[in-house]
Design a protein around this nucleic acid. Sequence first.
DNA 1: ACCTGAACACCGTTCAAGT
DNA 2: ACCTGAACACCGTTCAAGT
Lengths: 250, 250
Amino acid sequence: MDQHNNNQDQISEGTRKGKSPVRLSREAVVGLALHIADKEGIDAVSFRRLANDFGVTPMAVYRHVRSKDDLLDAMTEQMLASFDTSAVRETDWRDQVRGLLYALRQVLLDHPSGRVLLSRRSLPEANRLKLFEASLGILRGAGFEPREAFFIFEHFLNQVVSLVVAGDGYVQGSEEERQVWGAQLLEFYGGLPQQEFPWLVEAAPNIAACVDKDSHFKFGIDLLLAGVEAIAVSMRSKNHSAGEQKRAPR
Amino acid sequence: MDQHNNNQDQISEGTRKGKSPVRLSREAVVGLALHIADKEGIDAVSFRRLANDFGVTPMAVYRHVRSKDDLLDAMTEQMLASFDTSAVRETDWRDQVRGLLYALRQVLLDHPSGRVLLSRRSLPEANRLKLFEASLGILRGAGFEPREAFFIFEHFLNQVVSLVVAGDGYVQGSEEERQVWGAQLLEFYGGLPQQEFPWLVEAAPNIAACVDKDSHFKFGIDLLLAGVEAIAVSMRSKNHSAGEQKRAPR
DNA sequence: ACCTGAACACCGTTCAAGT
DNA sequence: ACCTGAACACCGTTCAAGT
């Protein structure tokens, strides 16, 4: 997290006037953009805003970044640079998967804008490719067919992303903002007419407490892995009769 | 789907000049907005665009819609109006759940903008509340605790949304656009260096064929329900020793 | 090579005014 | 009640210049 502040610490003090024009670099531009996105939301990132913070004209930014799409791709890459892939060295595939999911979670906790970045439609670059490849390797090693492995990976990604942002409670802003939103949710759902919405009224505290991320995340991952295990088992019984596969999931 | 054309058929022919000023209504505004969002993507929806299509000044739209947020909320509601809730009358909770998930899928297939609409952070209105309430009721009836029921519902929603948009292959545009994107994916992943990315090269056809929505959706729902079943079973065994619950999942 | 300045075609939203 | 017109503070991006 702190490594992204470096770029900004050299600049900071807001709208500097004309002097010591801090030569831009792609890394600095992307670093500041990611920092702004994480602290103020992805919508706060604009060429004009970046230029302003750098004390430079909007068009100067274009020398280091081809377009907004390019900028967002680069932000995704820089974010994933901190991804901890050490879990691939576990021996059991379940531990490998769990490890990667928790590593991805950590990235998303450090970078609230990650949800938006990861759900953009674009071709992945180096870091994202490595994550993708490692995951497929684990699932193929566990005995899943290419198709299943891909589907399962996709669901892993979706699941982690949506678990971290905690569904309804998703806020890319500050901790305080999230508290306020939680209070609003509690008031809203708790105040619904009880005859018409008995289950919603009952669930109101749980809906509002979506801030309780740890247990929420664990529940979701357990749910997902339970499903994957079940599929693995049913695959193994199918292979028993068909037997066209090299390795069955253990 | 066609009911949204009604509003537009009266207007159409693009930028009409001054005459027969078609009195706006909230329903007409929201209907056209949803229609534009589904055909051209959510970003194509703007007050200026709506005003232009209606042959009216941008500010006229504000008489029927308080703000952009209000407009998006209303679009979500109008979209969910076509939600088929008949599945709640099934007898087994698994069938009820499956039915609702497939009904939601249908809504999202009819409305490509639904993904964006449903992942906005806002308090739900009537139609969305009813869907939420019905789902909780089913899960509570199946014996899940309020907290689990809420978590599971959340995952259902996330799962359906992300399954329908098919992860990487998500395109809110036309069928043709999706084909193009699929071809790009195939070329990209298929063309990666095989030593470095063996699993990605192998999976390339599957990644590109994410257009194959039916089997993809079925796989995801099966995965999710397998996980839920497993949780239900482990809950039942826990209750065996604790026994603090009214009903256990059957 | 790197940055500036002006322009184009867009946004959401406010405010005062017309009918 | 419903719509207009002008304005404010924003967008991404292009193009022709400056140094």
